[in-house]
Write a protein that binds this DNA or RNA. Structure first.
Length: 430
RNA sequence: GCGGGUGUAGCUCAGUUGGUCAGAGCGCCAGGUUGUGGCCCUGGAGGCCGGGAGUUCAAGUCUCCUCACUCGCCCCA
């Protein structure tokens, strides 16, 4: 039997994992710059946490969750998104007691039972942040700007920022009412799924990709025209903030998101590099969720970013040049006596901070040199009978194609010194 | 869940109307002078031709089923 990774999952092999590490590090740095601290929560939660917060009628809850019973009959679910678990942890541990707002970031894998496609997997990874405890509109703008900065610095540009406001539950109810009334005359002409949406989740009709539906709903009311006074003011301030940050954006009246808990600001960063999966980052405000999960009434804002999608974009943009980090030195051991002596030398090199690689099995010197060259190491250190007899080691600068004999004892320190000389820095690639 | 495409060595792919079709390049391993890489040359290892069933004297090559990947739909990151 030859096993395969389950459908929709991916192995991140060593030839690619350095890209993940670099991107994760960049995200961590960005978060630190903005005052965020990391949170990690369990990979599964009580099922009800998700059904209640995301919404029973959403696709995610109704058909995409990995739900199972454990041995005691509890219903558990692999997290299909990360906001609800983090809010749950925030409430459970009274993190707000440290002072508001709480600024958290996370690097999570999330799980949805969907049909796999480029940029869409059953297990995928998200970078994200949640700010719990402020309804300040400049916060919305700041966090959107943070995502934009991160995407730009990572090399994902160009991308497009779209925003909208879904108001508060009362204003949304008024809008949904108006929307249904305006669509009512031609419901039967809409696509089958929109006819279902009309009944179950009317907002999503706005998001339909069918040409016919878009045509029919062209004259439909806009969310922003139904906002309550405070939400309208909030939205105006958010826009003002985005402009102050010099961010280009578009108000997309059709932008609605797949979770029920969003209020007021919603936004997406879209790209043209991904085909059908054009959203690389999405988020917004969820002022009612904390209370719904059992905490005090607390406003909050956050976003999630798809790591696999982001890497696909970066690849398309040619932003993944460079390569795996190479070892500093490659130790070539020639002859029987050099095997153990080399083992000790490698240890000393590593204690000096040199990443040291070597070959095993006593292969020919040529084979080892070949491997040294391929490793990308700046130095090959050669330890053979001659060197051992003289208490020395041969150091070859693979770039400069020069080599010296160094005393075995002081070798790591001398290499360190050599690397600090100007001429060692100016050697170009040969 | 619904459509279209693809599936041959680690990787990228050739394989004519079913009958030496199991191949190439790269990679890997070993040699090409005695202790020195990147170029070149030679040799070698490595494939139930995604899996299963069927048609046939004979199937990577045809049919069906299945699995996986892929492009759309749905949904989302």
């Amino acid at each position: 039997m030859r096993y395969k990774a389950p459908r929709g999952t991916n192995d991140i092999t060593p030839d690619r994992s350095w890209q993940w590490q670099a991107l994760e590090q960049r995200f961590r740095d960005c978060c630190r710059l903005h005052g965020f601290r990391e949170i990690r929560t369990p990979i599964f939660e009580e099922t009800e946490l998700f059904t209640r917060s995301i919404g029973e009628e959403t696709d995610i809850v109704s058909k995409e969750m990995y739900t199972f019973e454990d041995r005691s009959g509890r219903s558990l679910t692999l997290r299909p998104e990360s906001t609800a678990p983090i809010v749950r942890a925030w409430v459970e541990h009274s993190l707000g007691a440290e002072g508001l707002p709480t600024k958290l970031f996370y690097i999570y894998s999330v799980f949805r039972y969907e049909r796999p496609q480029a940029g869409r997997y059953r297990q995928h990874h998200q970078f994200g942040v949640e700010v719990i405890g402020s309804d300040d509109p400049t916060l919305d703008a700041e966090i959107i700007g943070m995502a934009a900065r991160f995407l730009t610095d990572a090399g994902a540009a160009p991308f497009f920022l779209k925003i909208n406001s879904t108001g508060v539950p009362e204003s949304r109810r008024a809008f949904v009412q108006a929307l249904k009334e305006s669509v009512e005359p031609f419901v039967r002409e809409l696509c089958p799924s929109c006819q279902t949406r009309y009944e179950k989740n009317p907002l999503r009709m706005l998001d339909c990709k069918e040409e016919r539906c878009r045509e029919l709903t062209r004259e439909v009311p806009h969310l922003v025209d139904y906002l309550d006074v405070e939400s309208a003011e909030h939205f105006a301030k958010v826009r003002e903030g985005l402009e102050a940050l010099g961010l280009e954006y578009e108000v997309d009246h059709r932008l609605v998101r797949g979770f029920d808990y969003y209020t007021r600001t919603v936004f997406e960063f879209q790209t043209d590099a991904l085909g059908a999966q054009n959203t690389v980052c999405g988020g917004g405000r969820y002022d009612g969720l904390v209370e719904q999960i059992g905490g005090p009434p607390t406003p909050a804002f956050g976003f999630g970013m798809g790591v696999e999608r982001l890497l696909l974009v970066l690849e398309a943009r040619g932003a993944l040049k460079g390569g795996e980090p190479a070892p500093d030195v490659f130790l070539v051991r020639v002859g029987e006596r050099a095997q153990v002596a080399g083992l000790a030398l490698a240890d000393r090199l590593r204690r000096q901070g040199f990443a040291c690689e070597m070959d095993y099995g006593g292969r020919s010197m040529k084979a080892q040199m070949k491997k040294a060259g391929k490793s990308g190491a700046r130095f090959a250190l050669i330890l053979g009978e001659d060197e051992l007899a003289a208490g020395q080691v041969t150091a070859r600068d693979m770039l400069a194609q020069q080599q010296w004999r160094l005393p075995l004892e002081g070798c790591p320190e001398m290499m360190r010194d050599y690397l600090q000389t100007p001429e060692s820095q100016t050697i170009g690639t040969i």
